[in-house]
Each structure stands twice: as C-alpha cells, then as structure tokens.
Design a protein around this nucleic acid. Structure first.
Length: 856
RNA sequence: GCCGAAGUGGCGGAACUGGCAGACGCGCUAGGCUCAGAACCUAGUGGGCUUAAACGCCCUUGUGGGUUCGAGUCCCACCUUCGGCACCA
C-alpha cells in the first residue's frame, strides 16, 4: 500500500501483519488490557517468566520460545476468565553489563537502560501480554533496597557469615566465582581459568535448609528430571562419623573424624586418607616423609578443585608416616594424603575400605596396602571391590549380618564407645554470596576497626552504589568500591566510631531470589510486599524458564523463600508451584571442516542438494547442530522473522515446531507452513484483493460440520491444558481446512476458531474479530465450550483384526451391540477368508476402535 | 564412570490407559490458474511384491531378544545422540 493513501472501506486487503500488529499493540496498551487488579474476584493465576538479563544482543530465539509459551499460558488463563498476573522485569546486575561498561567506558546503569529499551521494544512487537505497570529492575535502588533488607533478615537469623574460605579465584575476571559458576575449571562467563585461593567471603547457610529443600520437592508440580537434579545437587547421604585416634607417633592425643556411608565395613578399613589441606597434615607428618608430603601439598594447591576431581585416571598420594588406630579392632593403619579427598566435602578425611570400594581398591593395589573383604560377594563375582549386598565377614561381632543390620549394629557400637555417631551429610555447600565487583547490591554492612561486621539500620536503606571512576576489579580481590574513600569511610551505626563499609557486592542471584514477590506489589515504599497481596497471589502458578537454572537460581530462590516463610513474611512454603522447562533451540552451524573450527555465516555459504558449500572455495562445509550462539554464527534474530512474516507467524511457528519441553531444531523453511495457515484464515474471513470473504451463515453448524467443530474444541482445549501447543495448532489447522470446504461457513465455527486461535496469533485475530463485528477485545473473550453429545457420531469405523493383523474395515451404526458388530465383522469377505476352517478362540470389541478375532 | 532425557518417512513432528503407525506442517511430484513468475487451488507422496487398476499380501518406529490375540508404547540386553554430575567416602 502506498504511503499516505487512505484505506478504502470495503475493499478487502491482503494479510499485512505489519500494520495490524502495531495497531493492536497500541490498542492493548491504550485499553490497559493486561493490567491486573488485586481486588478482582475472579480466580487468580500467576504466570511468571524467568526474567531476562538484558544483554546488548537483544532477544534471542530462546527468549522468544520461553516468553511465547508463558504468554499463551497467560492468554489462555484470561480466556478462561481468570485474573492473570503476567509481569516482566529485568535482572540487570551482573558481569556482562560491567564488562561492557569497562570496554565502552560507559556507566553500567546507562548500558542497562539502553538494553532494556531494546528488549522492551522487541517484547512489545511480539505481542506478549505483560502488565507493564508492574515492570521492575533489580538494579533500581527502590528494588535493591529490599534485596538488602532481606539480607539483613538472613543476617539476623545467623544465616549469613564471614569466613576465610578457599574459593575459586578467577584471574581473568579478577573475581571469585561460586562453584556453581565454574565449568570445567573455567569461569562460566568468559571461560577464564579458575584456581583455588583462600579469601575472606560472605556465605549464606543454605546447608541449614538442605533437608527441607529436599523434602519439599515432593509436593511440587515440576518436571521429574529437574527435581532429580536438585536432589543430586543437595546430595543427602546417611552414615556415621567415626573418630580415629592417632597411633604410634601420637604424643598428645590428636584425632580426626571421617564420615562414611558404610560404617559396617569398618573392620576392613586398612588405611585412612586426608585431604592435603587437612589441618592435621603438617602436624602428624614424620620427618622422613615431610619432604614428600610438602611437595605433594604444594602441587595440589596449584590445581583447581575441578581439575582434581576431573582427573579420574591418576592414582596419586603420599604416606604421612603417621598411623591411626582403627577403633573397632585396634589395628594401626597408615594415614595417607591424596588430592581426591576434598577438604570442602564431609570432614576432609576418609577411611579407606579397599574390599568394598573400587576407588580404594585401586589406591591400595597401587601403593601395596592391605585389602580385607568385609562383605561376602556372590559366588560368581569376579571383580575386585564388592560394594553390594551380602553377609558380613572378617568383621568380628558383625559377622553373618546383612548390610543394613550390620550398619545399625556398628553405629550403636560406635555411639556406645563414644567414638562415633550416626550422621546425615549433604553434598550441598554453603552459598558463597560475595563478589568483588562494582555492579551488584552493596552489603548493608559496616566493619569496625577489628573488621567485625555490624548491620546498617533499616532506615539507612537503600545503601546505594557510589559513582566510581573505573569499574575494573582491582585485581587484588577487592572490589572497585574499595577505592572510593568517601564511601568506604563511615561511622559505626552503634558506637559512632570511624568504621569502614563492606566493599563486596552481592552476586547476580540475589535479585532474582525474590523478584516474584515484588511483582505482586512493585512500588510499595513501606514493605517489600504487602502481606494481603502476597497471600492473594502466591504461589506462582506457572513458572516458565530454561533448564540451565535447574539447580542454581531455583535452589537459591527456594532457600530465600523458606527463610522468609520462617520469619512469617510469606504465606507459602514454596514459591513456584508449577515449573515448565522449555527445550533448547538448536540450529545448524557451519565450519570450514571438522578440524578447522572457523565458523561460517550463512551468506558465506551456498546450498545445493541439501549440502552447504563454501562460496569462496567451493568445498563442502562441515555442519553440526548445536546450541545457538553468536560465536557459532548460527543466531537467528527474531526481528528479521517479524520483518518478513510478522509476530503472529513467529509465535505460531515456534510453538508448532514441537512440544515446549523438547529441544527444537530451528529451520526457517517450515515457517512458510504456519504463515500460509494465517493467510488462509485471512482470505476465508476477510478476503483479499482478488477474492471476497467467504459467505457466513447464522445457522449453527450441523451434521459433520458440527461434529468437526466440537471435536476441534474438545481436542484443542485438552491440548491447551497439557501445554501441547504443537498439536493444538494442528487441530486449528484441521478446523480451518474443514471450514474452507464449507460455503457458507457457519458463524459458530468461525467464532470458535477465532477464540481458539487468539492466544497464539492475537493480532490477526483481533483484526478479524473487529472486522466481523464482534464486541470488545478478542484477547479477553471467553474460551469456547463444546457439547459432549456432538462428539458422538452416527456410524463408527472399526478395524477388524484376525490374529493381530488388520483384515478388514467395518463401518457400523454407533448404536450397534458388541454381538452385532462381531457378526458384521466375521461376515467381511477378507475376514471370513482368514478365519475360514479355524476355530475362533477369542472375540472382542474395543468400542469405537477395533474388533479382535483370534482363530486357531 | 554415574544420573537424566531421547532415537518414528527426505525433514519438524503425531499416536489417550498396549488396539488401523505416520495427524498437522515442510519438502517433493503431477495438474490447474498465469504472458511468465510469485501467490493460490486440486491430486499424490514410507519401502517392496502382485495387479490393467482397485482389491490383496509382506516389511517398517535405533539393534537383538521377550511378554501378548495385538508392542512406537510393557520387560531384558545392547548401540547412538543430547543434557547434567563426577575420585562424594
């Protein structure tokens, strides 16, 4: 259409998403269509997205998938008459903004607000139905005031503490990372090497909540594999502590404790192993072993924890020269150190039972240490260590007992002798909560002259970030804040003495631990969330996001929520009742060859006969399917798709590609299909420049059309409830194909079609809704209902099986009895031929499906 | 190594509690429309045998076994891919 021309009335236009989409986005905004009221009497529904980090790249297809799924959930909820809270905000603290700021010499705040603008614009263009009046930003002082406030609550309950801990020091980022952020010995962001180094850090006692975090998973409507990942991460194990006293060289009664899940095997403990960092190591090492031990300890310190653990093959360790007394039979057993024992897990010491643990077996074999079996392996067992069930042997008072009984008896003995006790341990470690960076929430903490922390009073919040010259980490492990004397030097809130502020900042996870609560009451200046509103809206009914947050964010947020619950500030035990994980979007990437990892962009390639050739050389390119990434040059920008096809098509396609939970391979060729579908609907209802709209009849659909309509409503509704959007869309395609064969089209079919298409392609539906004279917004219209009666048909088709093979088809009245069906089935020519001369040993009818005949 | 998920046409995928495998879409083929193309419409489209054609028959859901009248679906073993964890005591 030429610019400036006045749209002529009654002349049908072809489907042009561009104009339609902005028109309706503006109308929704003007009508505040998706703004939600707290005092609405309708059933509440809280549909939440994992809020994005607003990167400079803009939205990627993963976001599009995530937020389209939740948008359809939210819109479907509205169609069902629910009062739907569907908010959006920005998780904008964190490393990338800071690194971008360092590179481009701009304040991270400015980088963030620029990116937010880009993101918000893209989100609006996709037609996602957010209540923008509730937008929040984790870097806004009015927001992080409450993040700091919650930290004070944690501190007051003794859940935050300072400790000198060996941490993952990343030279490249100039900061310390949580274990969870370290991947393969490198930083998750940036990929810099990470080494271990002791440092003063803040930690949160998430371990105190381990049991509840584990137990409360049971009641959640989450994907089982995500629950399983959290269980593994928490890593509960039951066993016993056993105390070993030093023997032979022991002068002053030193002892150490090991944790074991198999106290029943204590008679087979032929040596002990300490972590090289264990505090006892220096003390117990004998003079003739000292050189070897010192060398080994030094070597270990240079290795990162990941590195140590990843190295499964190498058996390494050194004898300390010291011996411990096995408490159960008094044997003197050697004490070794080895880097496979970690100071951070359990007690940093183990008792080794080579007869029952393959790892210990190999260590014993390698260093020629004794091996004693304490559990009788099965007769045909040919392996080395036996870790399975069996009767105790070589174990004194345990002999002849099964493993569980032997465990119980040994624990009782240990407790009686005062050398051990039953204990539960967790793999989960306390959460390392401080970062040496600028772009994070400052701790509301002041340190006195001795470095002892005191909290700021609540009325001093928010403690805002000061302006700095440079956002660069100092590289010494201190944050850039440490360089700002005006800010650092303050007075002690209690004594009034000169004091210093804590210069660490909180990790990015902090803001995302409670944001779902702030959406409920986003601008309350007095409390972090109004209690009545919290009670009304919580818990989140549907939380949609990627599996990459399965253990980090989701565990941290659950932890904070439980603390808030204990204080009485929230009303539910868990924040997220239902969790939906969308799959990853994958795309083919192209490289010069398998060895040469130079990635090629699509315009450097030529596609012939399903093979990509490199334009420059004519050689075939090497192609693999992998996660989309800028470095892999296989990123698809949603804006490009919207430009060509419109947002409705993109929304529809990303859902049509497959079930939400499955990983999906991006391939633009399929997008034509859903675009044609929308075009076809448009031509039928609106007409275009060469054909007029199909006539419509006010007569309700009848006969086959009625059956098709009600089947479509029933099927689509079922799919919507199960998040089966790909099949829901296919059912709408079937319904449209049915309508296309009807002239005129019954009005009730068209009406139901529009209502059901609305959550997927809201813009074009609004346009057709309005053009067909319907009242109000299609986005707020009621979901269609179906009539059970109409799902029935007069005649049913049966496949007739003889001995498991289909031998005929039978169409028969739905009212027929089983006996009548069997008679008719046996009479079918091909069926009769197959049962002729044989005896029917089984005959049955599966109503509406199949007739089963078994003949011998 | 351990844990989890998944292997179905040329492609993405569908198939309720075991009951007609391949819905829907892409692609492809033929025809229509067109000056031509795009768009659109119609028909066909897993493989094989038989047939003038229809009918009919056989094979087919990663591989090999098993249970069953009947298996993509349940059981056992194995292979491959993806994701997560990893000397965890």
């Amino acid at each position: 259409m030429a610019g400036g021309s006045v749209p002529q009335k009654r002349v049908p236009q072809r489907y042009d998403p561009k104009n339609i989409e902005t028109k309706w986005q503006d109308r929704w905004e003007a009508a505040a269509a998706f703004q939600v009221q707290d005092d609405d009497a309708r059933q509440k529904e809280y549909v939440l997205d994992m809020f994005p980090y607003p990167s400079g790249e803009g939205l990627h297809l993963g976001h599009v998938e995530n937020y389209t799924i939740s948008d359809v959930v939210a819109r479907y909820g509205r169609h069902q008459g629910h009062n739907v809270l569907h908010p959006m905000g920005w998780d904008a603290f964190g490393l990338p903004a800071e690194q971008y700021a360092i590179e481009h010499q701009i304040h991270p705040r400015d980088a963030v607000s620029k990116n937010v603008e880009v993101f918000a614009g893209q989100m609006k263009r996709l037609g996602w139905s957010y209540d923008w009046s509730r937008e929040i930003n984790s870097t806004d002082p009015d927001y992080y005031k409450w993040t700091q406030w919650i930290f004070l609550k944690l501190y007051d309950r003794g859940l935050a503490y300072v400790a000198e801990v060996p941490v993952n020091w990343c030279e490249g980022l100039g900061t310390v990372l949580a274990n969870e952020e370290v991947i393969d010995g490198k930083s998750e962001r940036g990929g810099f090497p990470v080494v271990r180094k002791p440092m003063r850090q803040w930690l949160l006692k998430i371990t105190e909540y381990a049991e509840r975090l584990l137990a409360d998973l049971e009641g959640l409507d989450w994907p089982e594999h995500i629950k399983q990942m959290q269980r593994e991460w928490i890593g509960r194990s039951e066993g016993a502590d056993v105390t070993f006293r030093l023997g032979i060289t022991d002068a002053d009664g030193d002892e150490f404790t090991v944790f074991t899940t198999r106290p029943d095997t204590l008679f087979g403990a032929t040596f002990c192993v300490l972590a090289p960092e264990h505090p006892l190591v220096a003390k117990i090492t004998t003079d003739d072993q000292r050189a070897a031990v010192d060398a080994y300890v030094a070597k270990t310190a240079r290795r990162s924890e990941r590195d140590r653990m990843a190295d499964v093959k190498t058996e390494s360790g050194v004898f300390t020269g010291a011996y411990a007394t096995n408490p159960v039979q008094g044997d003197q057993i050697p004490i070794w150190i080895a880097d496979y024992v970690l100071m951070g897990y359990g007690t940093g010491a183990i008792m080794a039972v080579p007869g029952g643990d393959q790892r210990d077996w190999e260590f014993a074999a390698n260093f020629d240490l004794p091996i004693i079996r304490t559990v009788q392996p099965p007769e045909d067992f040919e392996g080395e260590a036996w870790a399975g069930e069996g009767l105790a042997i070589n174990s004194g008072f345990l002999d002849g007992l099964e493993v569980p009984e032997a465990k119980a008896k040994m624990i009782a003995w240990l407790e009686e002798q005062g050398v051990g006790a039953s204990r539960v341990t967790y793999r989960l470690r306390d959460w390392l909560f401080s970062r040496q960076r600028y772009w994070g929430e400052p701790f509301p903490i002041v340190l006195d002259a001795d470095g002892k922390p005191t909290t700021l009073p609540e009325d001093a919040l928010p403690l805002t970030l000061p302006e700095v010259e440079s956002y660069k980490p100092t590289g010494t492990g201190e944050s850039p804040l440490a360089a700002i004397e005006d800010w650092v030097n303050t007075t002690h809130p209690v004594t009034g003495e000169p004091a210093k502020r804590e210069t660490n900042t909180m990790p990015q996870w902090a803001g995302s631990c409670w944001y779902y609560l702030r959406f409920i009451d986003p601008s309350n200046p007095d409390v972090f969330v109004d209690a009545a509103k919290e009670k009304h809206w919580m818990p989140v009914d549907c939380y949609v996001g990627g599996a990459e947050h399965a253990v980090l964010h989701l565990l941290y947020a659950r932890f904070w929520h439980k603390v808030l619950f204990d204080i009485g500030l929230v009303s539910t035990l868990e924040p997220f009742q239902k969790l939906v994980n969308q799959g990853m979007i994958l795309a083919p990437s192209y490289r010069v060859s398998e060895e040469d990892k130079t990635y090629l962009a699509k315009d450097a390639l030529e596609f012939r006969e399903n093979t990509a050739f490199i334009k420059a050389t004519g050689e075939p390119a090497f192609s693999i399917v992998e996660k989309m990434g800028k470095s892999k040059k296989n990123v698809v920008n949603p804006d490009d798709i919207i430009q060509v096809y419109g947002a409705d098509t993109l929304r529809l396609y990303i859902l049509f590609m497959g079930p939400p939970v499955a990983d999906k391979l991006w391939d633009d060729s399929g997008i034509q299909g859903v675009h044609r579908f929308l075009n076809k609907a448009w031509r039928l209802i609106m007409g275009d420049e060469r054909q007029t709209a199909r006539a419509r009849s006010t007569e309700p659909a009848s006969g086959d059309a009625r059956h098709a309509l009600h089947t479509a409503i029933a099927g689509t509704t079922k799919d919507m409830d199960a998040l089966g959007y790909n099949t829901a869309i296919s059912k709408l395609m079937v319904l449209l194909n049915t309508m296309a064969d009807l002239d005129p089209v019954p009005e009730d079919m068209l009406d139901a079609f529009l209502r059901m298409l609305a959550p997927f392609a809201p813009h074009v539906v609004e346009e057709m809704w309005e053009a067909t004279g319907r009242e109000g917004l299609a986005s707020l219209a009621a979901w269609p209902t179906y009539d059970e009666e109409a799902l029935k048909t007069d005649a049913e088709e049966y496949a007739v099986q003889v001995n498991g093979k289909v031998r005929g088809k039978l169409v028969i009245g739905a009212e027929s009895s089983d006996e009548e069906i069997l008679v008719a089935a046996r009479a079918l020519e091909n069926v009769a031929a197959n049962i002729d001369g044989k005896q029917l040993v089984k005959q049955m009818v599966v109503r509406g499906r199949i007739v089963v005949l078994v003949a011998k």
